[in-house]
Amino acid sequence: MQCALDFIVQSFQFDIPRTFPAHPALNEDGRDSLRRLLLAYALHNPSVGYCQAMNFFAGLLLLLMPEENAFWTFVGIIDDYFDGYYTEEMIEAQVDQLVFEELIRERFPKLVHHLDYLGVQVTWISGPWFLSIFVNILPWESVLRVWDVLLYEGNRVMLFRTALALMELYGPALVTTKDAGDAITLLQSLAGSTFDSSQLVFTACMGYLTVTEARLQELREKHRPAVLLVVEERSKGGRVWKDPNGLATKLYSFKHDPELLIEENKGTEGSDDALADGDLSYKEPAANLDEMLSGLSVNSELEGRDLQEQVVWLKVELCSLLEDKRSAVL
């Protein structure tokens, strides 16, 4: 037991002094509270344990309420509203990013087109926003306003609405940027100076009423298989990547054939089937995929896979290849 405790304490010991450093309330006593809260939670829910970012949430709550209340509020947020987010695999966090990417492509096609052109993936920026629930991303007052709505609604809808609102507010500035670095730096600094919290919350809540929990659930269902597949691949320790007869190798030999690549690109136009990562600018007709699949000689490893899974996996792969190509052309 002591060993398990030590392990947990070790996982967050470096983050205790790095939680709102220099905040007067997080003095020795404050840090002890923080330590107790995180330890209690890790024992309460070992499937999550401790995940970086949780230190900030616990710290925020401790600034607002007594320790025990902070603990139960924390439990509610992590176990309920953010179920599956901060676990070892962080699956729901990854799913939400794919969902957000789809939403942003739907709402701001021009902006996304520009970011695509610069080689910036929206999720590079939105990932930290979601994971930190905007703590350290927005000014403190804006963080509290967003948290207020989030806790009131009792789900993650406000994450999406806030992120969409930020894109709406800062999109016009973003499209003037000339390279990936400038775009990301600009968005970081603009987000960090979102002092008009009323405007932010108003834009988020009134502008994106159609982004509802039901719609998000629908999109999550759609994108979850792709994430699960990648997670599964990772947990196999990249075996498929290394196996000379594996699927990945076949894909790469496919990748190295320039004619095939061109053909593949031609085939990617004019279909409605969104890619697994929500990349609407590169679409592929199912027929093309089938052709590709049948072109791959199926070995024992492939036989074990569900065809549907293979399709999703190939989509993910194809997508990353296209991304590479896009970056290369840029």
Binding site: F14, D15, P17, R18, T19, F20, P21, A22, Q52, A53, N55, F56, W124, G127, P128, L131, S132, V135, N136, G181, D182, I184, T185, Q188
Partner: peptide
């Protein structure tokens, strides 16, 4: 007294 990095941070 730096803060923990959540996800990623970026600079040029």
């Amino acid at each position: 007294e730096s803060k923990s990095t959540i996800g990623v941070e970026f600079a040029t």
